[in-house]
Design a protein around this nucleic acid. Structure first.
Lengths: 224, 224
DNA sequence: TGTACATCAGTGAACGCGCGTTCACTGATGTAC
DNA sequence: TGTACATCAGTGAACGCGCGTTCACTGATGTAC
């Protein structure tokens, strides 16, 4: 019967979620490396081997957390975007803000995806698409928007990389603009990481105004 | 006798160094969290407890490695600088290159200092001064240099942070320029991190030309 | 609707492992007279 | 220069701990007829 069968499946889905939630909670305390299946199981009141009904290995749980984190920060960026009706400048700034806000609310999940790679752990393919969502949200602001044309010498190899990117993304922009967009993307996450990882202590800590300033300057920088 | 006493001290200094070297080697394989005193001792052919004659704890060894890494990348930046005789633009680019080259040659030591913070580990004060060396090398290029004046609205809180920074650094520059310098510094490490941590795969990987381009654009950006 | 069978969730014990740190000790190196 | 003592490096055993993963099992939930 579909109804009862769904019951079991629903229980399964719920527990899978609970395991991930608890794992995230522990991530915040002990970091990715310290994540322990046994501790997660203990906290959920189950025996450690039971976890293996839901995740075939610790690595697989980690992968799921990583994919979830990419999707969560991507969704935060997308939801922050006020949409095509708003001024492109406003959209850009809102997306920067939304991305940072998520990162500050979930520092350990952020570190999981934008911090040092976990040694011995190889990111599987599942990671690629979710990882691009924030960048795509920014790109979306630029498409169908009158951009200030920017000239600039671009080395041949870089020009080729930029042109193949514009094809994939569907942005109509010169190579210099595309490269600047990548720089802006780098700046966005560079600033968030420096903030979260404590590098601004002693200079622009708290970094709220610095971050807002950076968002504005990078908007100008890409011709927005 | 000073001579013989020095012998014992020299042996001590040498072994301390060997322990750190071996620890660095293991860092590259297993990451900061996986660093094990027992493994280090094993590799050096000594019993694990012997390490405690040289480092009072694992954390202390980690701290020393972190300080060493900051100093090493700082020194790399300083050595890359061709000095006051060269054109400021050239100096700036050389420092960017030198910093990235070191990072690429020592990715795990880089991750140790610019990656996710290690949970449960609190960076002690010893870390502050070495951590500033790369930034100071860049600042040094700007002092005694004719900078293009840049205007720009700077929010009050940020302006205050910028002004207190200029005092510490001894740069004569308006707040907008100081803030831009911080953005450039962020861009430098943001780009290195994205490169080393694999975020450019699929866009500007290899990132050599992109990095060189960024260095140039950020030089212009700060008015150099 | 009722029964026989198959699927799945969760148990509990076990395997084999490595870790940081402490401690009482031996023996070598350095110091003072 | 020679001897008595103090300092230090390194040993080896032990403490107490937690980990990921496997496996044979019990009992509950779902399926087919």
């Amino acid at each position: 019967m579909t109804a009862t069968r769904t019951a079991r499946e629903r229980a399964r889905a719920e527990l899978t979620q609970e395991i991930k939630d608890e794992a995230r909670r522990q991530l915040a305390e002990v970091g990715a490396h310290g994540l322990s299946l046994r501790a997660v199981a203990r906290e959920l009141g189950m025996v450690s081997s039971a976890i293996y009904r839901y995740f075939p290995s610790r690595d697989r749980l980690l992968t799921d957390l990583i994919v979830d984190a990419y999707n969560a920060i991507g969704e935060a960026a997308e939801k922050a975007d006020p949409g095509a009706d708003a001024a492109p400048r406003e959209r850009w700034l809102a997306i920067w803000r939304g991305t940072r806000d998520w990162a500050r609310a979930h520092p350990h999940e952020y570190a999981l995806i934008y911090g040092s790679p976990i040694p011995g752990y190889a990111a599987p393919q599942d990671t690629v698409v979710p990882a691009a969502r924030v960048a795509l949200a920014l790109v979306k602001v630029l498409t169908h928007t009158e951009l200030r044309e920017i000239d600039g010498e671009v080395a041949p190899g870089l020009r080729a990389q930029a042109e193949s990117l514009t094809k994939v993304l569907g942005v109509i922009a010169g190579p210099e603009t595309t490269v600047r967009l990548l720089m802006a993307w780098t700046q966005l996450f560079g600033a968030i990481s420096f903030d979260l990882f404590g590098q601004y202590v002693g200079s622009v800590d708290p970094a709220d105004e610095f971050f807002a300033h950076s968002a504005k300057r990078m908007a100008e920088f890409v011709g927005l």
